[in-house]
Design a protein around this nucleic acid. Structure first.
Length: 364
DNA sequence: AAATTCTCCAACCGCTTAACG
DNA sequence: TCGTTAAGCGGTTGGAGAATT
């Protein structure tokens, strides 16, 4: 039944890697190439089987290794060189730190903008975002978001909210940069909030859908569920909204090419509910409490969007959220138009997708 | 100079999914 | 079909270094 454990955790080292261990792993991979990480444990030391490969060693097939070589490869392990690490740890170390194509150093403004834009679209899909940033790992992107960009956007969001408290009519664009990273972070943060709102609205719609009559064609609905994800992304990506995202403020059109966007979107094929709740983005404002009352109805950050979801039981929550954001956008007609288009887009999506299409996961 | 606080990031943890027997 | 496992992913943590008091 099943496969034998590839390794037990007893005797395996944890914690920071030493330069010696790094060298062992690098030497091993340079000598043998990448392999199946689970084959790293000690079974190989005795040249014994390690439960076999999943699907006949797919990781080896993409390496172009012939089957005999692949089989042999799968049995060779760095443990033979003295690495007391589990395969999982080896894999992470290699992917996140030792890989030769890793780009170290600070993120460029272009990369920062790309991360913000992509996060606004796909949420916390760090692997998908990192796939669009050559040389950057998901872990690196994630860390950078959590330690830099999120704080930056929160600060800007709070500053904007305070500005609205002081002078609602003069709250349009007040970009002053964020640590010199980018002069457009405020607008980017608002974009994120808009997309977050739209996404949350879609989730709210889905939450209500069980109340609706079941899909007349369950089979086709199932089919739609299986295929809607990438299609949805592609259609959004090629829509005016997606175009507005890609081209706004002169930010480089990350993944603007069909192939590029397709790649990213393909990486975001919906997964069945890892997270039950909404994917809270970095713009959720914990610092806006002081101004919440005065901006209520006008919003100001994604927390307002959250309130829209909370009112999802209300039949008019969609219109309410829409109006809320129209109020929030205020005199910024460009953003207002963009958001209107955004809602048009999601209305179109809601009518186009099957009842059980997991639209929410398409944005996570 | 020492103590404290803050920041950053490598690594781990836990979950989901897919594949195997 | 079901139990088990590895791979992959996102969330979280802990420690080292930097900054501040």
């Amino acid at each position: 039944m099943g496969r034998a454990p590839c390794c037990d955790k007893q005797g395996l080292k944890k914690g920071p890697w030493t330069p010696e261990e790094d060298k062992i792993l690098i030497d091993y991979i340079q000598a043998h190439g990448l392999g199946i990480w689970r084959s790293l444990p000690k079974q190989a030391a005795s040249a014994g089987p390690c439960g076999g490969g999943r699907g006949g060693s797919p990781a080896l097939s993409w390496l172009g290794l012939a089957s005999p070589a692949a089989d042999a490869f799968a049995l060779v392990v760095p443990w033979t060189a003295g690495l007391l690490r589990c395969g999982k740890s080896c894999r992470l170390r290699w992917i996140n730190y030792l890989r030769p194509d890793i780009k170290r150093g600070p993120f460029t403004p272009e990369e920062q903008s790309s991360i913000v834009h992509l996060h606004g679209i796909v949420g916390n899909k760090w692997s998908a975002i990192a796939a669009q940033l050559p040389g950057r790992t998901d872990n690196e992107v994630k860390n950078y978001w959590n330690t830099h960009l999120k704080k930056c956007l929160l600060r800007k969001g709070a500053a904007n909210a305070e500005a609205r408290c002081a002078s609602p009519a003069s709250s349009a664009r007040s970009d002053s940069g964020c640590g010199g990273a980018s002069p457009t972070f405020s607008s980017v943060a608002r974009h994120m909030a808009q997309w977050e709102s739209a996404r949350l609205e879609a989730e709210a719609r889905l939450a209500r859908e069980p109340l609706h009559p079941p899909h007349p064609h369950p089979a086709s609905a199932s089919s739609a569920h299986a295929t809607a994800g990438p299609d949805v992304f592609l259609r959004i990506w090629h829509s005016e909204v997606g175009e507005a995202f890609r081209s706004r403020d002169g930010v480089p059109s990350t993944g603007a090419s069909p192939a590029c966007s397709s790649t990213m979107l393909g990486a975001c094929v919906p997964k069945q509910g890892r997270t039950a709740g909404p994917c809270v983005s970095g713009v959720q404002g914990k610092e806006d409490g002081d101004c919440k009352s005065s901006v209520s109805g006008g919003g100001g950050n994604a927390e307002a969007a959250g309130s829209g979801v909370e009112g999802a039981d209300s039949p008019s929550s969609s219109e309410g959220t829409y109006q809320m954001y129209l109020n929030w956008v205020g005199e910024d007609t460009a953003l207002g138009g963009l958001f209107h288009e955004s809602f048009e887009t999601f209305s179109w999506l809601g009518g186009d997708l099957g009842e059980d299409t997991c639209l929410d996961t398409a944005f996570k």
